[in-house]
Structure formats: structure tokens, C-alpha cells
């Protein structure tokens, strides 16, 4: 039997989902605040790195908000945001090692998130796993 949107939302936020949302919220705060300061004060030094930091911040915000909302439509948004995040951390992580001169300033995703204890690398896997685990047939 199909569950109501409220039940789906509650299931998204419940248990491990609550920890997931906590970590996303912390990264949303950290990445966004950092990139705003960087862009405001020294954008010219490394525009690519700063724009990537800002993109990461926006993706973390979208993931946090959509996981908190947790209904069917929000879960789709979260899945897309987290997939982009996964692609971002893998591509930027690899690029920052292969072309270090393009990334003179570290972003959240540089070195696969090594500056943040590799949490940025693990987080999207955790997120996609949780969305998959709590998925219910429509």
C-alpha cells in the first residue's frame, strides 16, 4: 500500500537520516560561508576554485533542505543534488591531483575532501545509500 507523503518524509528524517542531515547541514554552513568570504575578498586570485566552492555550498544547501522536507518530490531533488555532489568530489578530487596549478586554493572537494577528513567523499555514498534504503514503491 502506498504511504502518505508525511510518512515518507518522516522515514527520510528518521534514524540514520537524522545524522545524514546533521552532517549535510554542517557542510552547507561551512562551504557556503567560506566561499562567500573568498568570493567577496579575493575572487581574482582563483576564480575557478572559488566558484567550485560556491557550487559545493549550494549543492549542500539543496541536499540539506530536500532531505529535511523528505517528501517524494524532495527526495528526487536530493538524489540529483547528491549525485552531482558525488560527481563533483570525484572529478574535482582527481583534477586537483592531476592539474594542481588549476587549484592554487583548496576547495571542499580538493584531494577528494582530504582537508575535511575525507567526509566529503563518504557523504554522497551515505546519502545515496540512505535514499535507496528508504525508497518506497509509489
Amino acid at each position: 500500500m502506498a504511504e502518505s507523503e508525511q510518512e515518507i518524509a518522516a522515514a527520510t528524517r528518521r534514524g540514520p537520516g537524522r545524522i545524514l542531515i546533521t552532517v549535510y547541514a554542517i557542510f552547507a554552513l561551512a562551504a557556503t560561508a567560506r566561499s562567500l568570504v573568498q568570493i567577496a575578498t579575493k575572487f581574482g586570485e582563483a576564480p575557478l576554485a572559488f566558484l567550485l566552492s560556491a557550487l559545493a555550498g549550494v549543492i549542500y544547501i539543496v541536499a540539506t533542505v530536500s532531505l529535511v522536507r523528505g517528501d517524494r518530490a524532495s527526495r528526487r531533488v536530493a538524489k540529483i543534488a547528491i549525485s552531482i555532489e558525488l560527481a563533483g568530489v570525484l572529478l574535482v578530487g582527481a583534477a586537483s591531483l592531476i592539474f594542481p596549478h588549476s587549484f592554487p586554493v583548496a576547495t571542499v572537494w580538493s584531494g577528494f575532501g582530504s582537508g575535511y577528513g575525507f567526509v566529503p567523499l563518504v557523504l554522497p555514498f551515505f546519502g545515496l545509500w540512505w535514499l535507496r534504503k528508504t525508497d518506497r514503491p509509489a
Binding site: 528518521r14 534514524g15 540514520p16 537524522r18 545524522i19 542531515i21 546533521t22 552532517v23 547541514a25 554542517i26 554552513l29
Partner: peptide
């Protein structure tokens, strides 16, 4: 800002996951 928000968020769920939320923060 972190501790009060985390405390509210953890009290919403009265099991070990709520405790973990506070621990992370």
C-alpha cells in the same frame, strides 16, 4: 549557532540516533 540547532534537532528523536546527532555537532 551549532550547539543549539543540534540540540533541537537531536531532541526531536529520542533514541541513539538523536544522541549521535549531538555527538557529531
Amino acid at each position: 549557532a551549532i550547539p543549539p540547532i543540534a540540540a533541537l534537532w537531536s531532541l526531536d528523536e529520542s533514541d541513539r540516533y538523536g544522541t549521535t546527532v549531538l555527538l557529531v555537532a
